[in-house]
Simulated scan of single mutants.
Amino acid sequence: MLVYVYLLSYLSAVRAGSHSLMAFATYIIGQTPFPEFSAVVMLDDLQVMYYDSITRRARSYDDSKHYDEEKSVAGVIFRDMYNDMKGRAFYLKEHLNFTDGVHVYQRLAGCELLNDDKPGPLQTWDAFDQKNKEEFIFNEEKNHFQIELPWILWDNLQIAHMKFLYKNVYHPVCIKVLQSYLQVKKNNVMRKVKPRVRLMRKMLSDSEGLQISCLATGFYPRHINLTLFRDGQPVEDNQITGGEILPNGDGTYQMRKSLVISEEELREEHEYNCTMKHLSLDNKLDFTFVSDVAESDPGSFSQFVVFSVLVFMCVVVFIITALIIWRKRRAAGRDSEASQCKYFSTSSSMQDET
C-alpha cells in the first residue's frame, strides 16, 4: 500500500508533456491466495504488461511488433527482480525481527522521458510491511547513483556494482521499452481532451454560509492546474477542500476544489473565480462566480426557493383540477350523445311499426 501511494504521487508529479514507465511489484511472505510475486507495468496511467511467479511469463496488453523482444527482456528483468526481492524480503524479516505470518515487500521502479525526449532519472522505491522505505536514484545526465534511507550498509564495491547495473542495463532498457510503448500507445497517452467545467453553489445549514465549488472533469492527460481566487488573489490551500485528481470511468479524470464562504464574507461582496490550465487548452480558462441573491443573502435565497416551490405546487394543482373537470365534461358529453342516439333509435322504430 505504501508503494502504491508513491505510485499515485509519482504519476501526479510527472511533468506535463513527459511520459513514464513504472513497474509496481509485490512479493508476499506467507500463505495467501495471491501469487508469491507479481508485477504490473504502467505506461503513464495505462497498464501495458503483467507478470507473476505462477506463470513466469510476461503478458503484454498491446499489439507491438516488438512484442516477443519486449516479453523476453521483461521476463529477464522480472525474474531478476523476483530473486532480488525474495532474498531481501527474508533478510529483512529476520533483520527486523518480524514474527511468522504474512509480510509484504513492494517495489516501484521506473524511468521518465521528458517532454524534450531527453531521458529522465531512473528511480526505485522499496517498502516492507508499509513501514520502511528505501530509495535508489540514478541520474544519467550527471552519471550519479545514490541510495536514500538504506536498510543495510552498502560498501563501495556494492554501490559500484549497482551503479553499473542501473547505468548499463536497467536505465537503457527502461527508456527503450518506454519509447517502444509510446509508439504503440501514442493515440491513447498523447491524446488531449479538454475539461468540462461546472461552477456549483450550495447553501449550508445552520447559517454556515455558502460553499462554492469548481469542478473540471473529462480531461486527459491527468495534469491540470486548478486555482480558486478571491478578489484576484489565490485562496490559501488550507481554506480549500478537495484538489485530488480522480479517475472517471471512461479513462479521463476530474478534479474538484471547494471553498466555504461565511455569512460575514458574503456581506463583504468579494469576487470569486476559478482558473484552470491544461495541455488541451491554448490559453487558461477563467470562470467567475456571479454575485447574486444566492450569494449575498442566504435568507432571501431560501425565501425564493420556498416561493418557487409553492408556485410550482399551485400550477400542478391547477393542471390536475382542470384535467379532472375536462374528463368529467367529456364523460357527460358522451352520456348525452348516447341518450340522443337511443332516443332517435326508439323514434325510428316506432315510426316503422306505424
Rank of each mutant, 00 (worst) to 15 (best):
E271C: 10
R56A: 09
S72D: 10
L92P: 04
C274I: 07
D250S: 09
Q31T: 15
Q123Y: 00
K142Y: 00
L215G: 05
N248H: 08
A58Q: 12
S308L: 01
K185P: 01
L46I: 14
V177T: 04
Q340N: 13
L246Y: 08
I261E: 01
Y67I: 10
S262E: 03
I54S: 06
L46Q: 15
A25P: 08
Q340W: 11
D80G: 14
E236C: 09
M81D: 08
S348N: 13
V104H: 01
Y220L: 02
H103N: 13
N83I: 06
H171E: 03
S296D: 00
E112H: 07
W125P: 07
H270S: 15
L281Y: 04
I137V: 14
G243H: 04
D206H: 15
K186Q: 15
V235N: 03
S347H: 11
Q158L: 11
D129H: 06
F219V: 11
L279W: 00
F138Y: 12
K185F: 15
F164Q: 04
D80K: 11
W151P: 05
V177Q: 03
V311P: 03
T32H: 08
V184W: 03
D116Q: 04
F24M: 14
E337F: 07
C274S: 14
Y91M: 09
L199H: 11
D100E: 02
L285R: 13
I137G: 01
K167G: 00
L323I: 10
I29R: 11
F304Q: 02
A89Y: 05
L92D: 04
S20T: 15
M255T: 11
Y61W: 15
K142N: 12
N156C: 06
E337W: 07
L310T: 10
I325A: 14
K342Q: 14
H66D: 01
E265D: 15
E265R: 12
S308A: 15
Y6K: 03
T346F: 06
H278E: 08
H144W: 09
W154T: 01
D352C: 10
E141D: 12
E135W: 06
T227S: 13
